[in-house]
């Protein structure tokens, strides 16, 4: 245990979580951790064991800055009306296909409609659908007896193509 009270067990936990670099350790444990590491060979061994992974992680290059294309799209976001209900966004190619239900909803009710209305709209559509089915099954729409009258002259006089064919046959 260091003078300031850190146990070797806690030191091992600290290193297992944050690595061997004291700069990453919690502020309130850094001083006691450094003290233990410098005065206790076992603590120094624990830190050395974690140092390899730290080096591998440190070898990752810094990410490149955001692309100009992204910046243009981000700029475009602020040109859209700020609607607190309906998410409107400039789409990347291929993203529209992922909008799913909301696209259908906006197509039916307009882009200004609130997504919160989707359940009500779905309910309304279901009621209309059920009404249509019920109507179809009722007497009002019962199939009536029909007689098919075939008038050959209608075909002959109504279809110049056929006349033309007959002329050709003549």
């Amino acid at each position: 245990m260091s003078k300031s009270g850190m146990t070797l067990e806690r030191f091992a936990e600290l290193v297992a979580s944050y690595g061997a670099d004291p700069a990453r350790w919690p502020d309130d444990e850094r001083r006691s951790g450094v003290e233990l590491m410098s005065g206790n060979p076992r603590a120094a061994d624990i830190a050395a064991g974690a140092g390899t992974l730290d080096k591998l992680l440190a070898g990752l290059p810094a990410p490149a800055p955001a692309s100009a294309a992204l910046c243009d799209r981000l700029e475009a976001i602020s040109t859209l009306p700020q609607d607190h209900n309906a998410p409107a966004r400039p789409a990347r190619p291929g993203q529209l296909a992922n909008r799913g239900g909301y696209s259908i909803f906006t197509a039916l009710f307009g882009s200004g409609a609130s997504p919160a209305l989707i359940p009500q709209a779905a309910g309304l559509l279901m009621i209309c659908l059920a009404g249509g089915v019920a109507l179809g099954l009722s007497d009002f729409a019962a199939p009536r007896e029909t007689t098919l009258v075939v008038d050959p002259s209608a075909y002959f006089f109504g279809d110049p193509g056929l006349d033309k064919d007959l002329e050709e046959l003549d």
Binding site: A66, S67, P87, R92, Q95
Partner: peptide
């Protein structure tokens, strides 16, 4: 992935603008 990262950040900024 950089393209996916940029998509995620774009969506995040849309959420920032809206929310």
């Amino acid at each position: 992935s950089r393209p996916e990262a940029e998509d995620a950040v774009q969506e995040a900024f849309v959420k920032l603008w809206i929310n």
